[in-house]
Design a protein around this nucleic acid. Sequence first.
RNA 1: GACCCCUUCGUCUAGCGGUUAGGACACGUCCCUUUCACGGAUGCGACAGGAGUUCGAUUCUCCUAGGGGUCGCCA
Length: 423
Amino acid sequence: MSTLPVRVRFAPSPTGYLHVGGARTALFNWLYARNRGGKFILRIEDTDEARNTPEAMAAIFDGLRWLGLDWDEGPEIGGERGPYFQSQRKSIYDDYLARLTAAGRTYEDGGAVRFKFSRQPINVPDLVCGDVQFAATEEPDMTVRRPDGSYIFHFCNVVDDIEMGITHVIRGEDHLSNTWKHTDLFHAFGKHPPRYAHIPLILNPSGSKMSKRDEGAAVSSYIQDGYLPDAVFNYLCLLGWTPRAEKEKLDRAALITLFEVSDVHSANARFDMEKLKWFNAQYLREMSPDELLAAATPFLKTAGISTDASFAAAALQSVKEKVSLLTEFPGWVHFFFREDFPFEADAVTKLKSKPENKVLLEAAAAHFSTFADWSEHGIHKAIEEVAALQSVKPGVLMPLLRFALSGQTRGPGVTTIANLAGK
RNA sequence: GACCCCUUCGUCUAGCGGUUAGGACACGUCCCUUUCACGGAUGCGACAGGAGUUCGAUUCUCCUAGGGGUCGCCA
């Protein structure tokens, strides 16, 4: 048994946005490397100059970093086997092409260079799909270099995997049908192909491939929509893989320990935003007040709410089990931070229709103004006293007070609101 | 069209010849409760179809159907 140190790579092309499927591929590669004590390499496949954009490049880096997928070799990090941009590796490709030509495996065709397939049956052993047999091909020989001297994906991909010492290729199943071509190339170079693991695709809720128009296709959308990286990380793991554990909510350390690439399924999985939201809510709830304040502040700021107030962290805590996304916080806590908060129109009409409500509120206000013990306990006691004086149950007073204090019919406990808002 | 992968509740899945087919999300009901939630309990709900192998198929084989993917001088 070979015990080569594991070297895996994520090789995106900077031509659009970071696709959630790509992120999941990166995630599985990362998990595998971390589980095996190997290296996770980031390689940018930017051979198609016309389609590359700086924005797409930034989206890849930002998305991976947001998810906590740090790379051991690659852009901005460096490494022994660089450069890690294919656009900077032309001389290496030239060299490999020369070898192929010396072996009599290429020919020119209209200025382009084609690779002569072996036209033998090819077996692709796959850690996920098992042995996949491909009959001798009848496809036309594959172009590896364009007339302008630039190289084609399949060629660069194989050359780089050889040069970078990649031991395991974990990638989307959409590449499975082309893998025999890569195997043929490896053989032509006199190399053994790496171990392959083709992971299932992520489908949209209607069962077709996720595309830019589908909700949640871009990793950036999760950042914007108020998801937590740990929640997305956890959920993505569960799409195509079931950790051998009693529960589904698992932290990174546990996921690394449990990860086993041969446990990955071979069937495609549909994306379920509701379940992701559930995970997000779970992770939100276990955040400390400081962590939550830090995470939610940008979203509150966007809504025009400053979190400088000393009670900001406590205000967020008071509603954290009511929300699933960071973007929902402003709608739940805005009244803590401003004097002119809006009142729900329907509720205003409904409450005003009962004249006794006015009497009750005025009585409460009068009583509160004389009350000294402004703690949750003290406030609760005061409310009970007012209720007793007015001969109603405290439960009648609570909704009125909540509405007067917050303008809403939902929210934290009345005593909590009153206490945080201050006398 | 050819080739490749896949097929268990609505969704993600457990299962690796004998199970009352289990769990999670969602949904229904009940409890808790000053609202909204959380939480707890409970319910609804699946082996695509057909042959074969076997004492016995969700599980193994084949066929059909369906879904997805690949067949570029895109990656």
